[in-house]
Amino acid sequence: MSTTTPTSGRGAARRRALIGRTVFAGPGLIYITAFMAIPVLLVLVYSFFQRGRFGGIVWEFTFDNYVRAFEPVYIQVFSNSLVIAGTTTLLALLIGYPTAYAIAKLPARWRTVALVMVVLPFWTNFLIRTYAWIILLNSEGPINSSLVDAGIISAPIGLLYTPGAVIVGLVYAYLPLVILPVYASIERLDRQLVEAAGNLGASRARAFFDVTLPLTLPGVMIGAIFVFVPSLGNFVVPELLGGGKTVMVGNLIRDQFLEARDWPFGAVLALFVISLLVILFAMQAAISRRINGTGKRMSSRA
């Protein structure tokens, strides 16, 4: 459609593109602006004003909300969240990478089935998936009772309502989001490079760590961001599996908006999550540019 007919001039083509943009993309872009861009900007604006008494805000400019975020209580929550989200990300990568690698080695017809089976749980209700772990980890639940029956432990141990339970729940929730981008990057990998490393005498382990892993790093980073950022903002898993003992940034944000009714401070906390997301994506883009460059150079040499 964009190729112009020989008879119409450049002006007509441009007019047609403009009409196409307005008619087709116009309504959607306006909708996204109204119900995503403006609301997110509003969060940024709110962070500089004072709280209203019953939620909402008072239009008096202040930096206090930002200053307050540096109070030891909140620093504690931030570092706690970073540790839990970081551990979650690491575990998800340790499980997800070999899984993605194995899927990429499957015969073509099995690969689609394998991938669909990876994403399938992700499309189901998130609360239900979290709830399933309440049953599994409960002191009367199947894990504890089989451990007791097997004689490994003499009495049920407290698995639920621990930071470990929160990490397991988060890994469970976001594992598909690691496997997909890692799989995509392994799939795209130029296998000749790995073969070349082998022919030049590198062991399989050496070829993996020197060639495969660095070249799939962009996918690994995307996967890591997709786990790390939503883990920070998740308030359901810490509440249901952590029993409220593990407080993460997500819980704080939820409480500021729905319970403490301090929207400006909640906005500051949310901006922390957004800026982390933006910084991590920027890092990913930079690294992926460098690696693609290296990959091409290596390809042309090989």
Binding site: I32, F35, M36, P39, V40, L42, P230, I253, A267, V273
Partner: peptide, 21 residues
């Protein structure tokens, strides 16, 4: 990217933004 952003933005951020809006 702008068109697909609502699918990528953390749900909590979208949620509080909409509540405020």
């Amino acid at each position: 990217a702008y068109s697909l952003a609502p699918a990528i933005i953390p749900d909590l951020v979208l949620a509080i933004g909409l509540l405020a809006f």
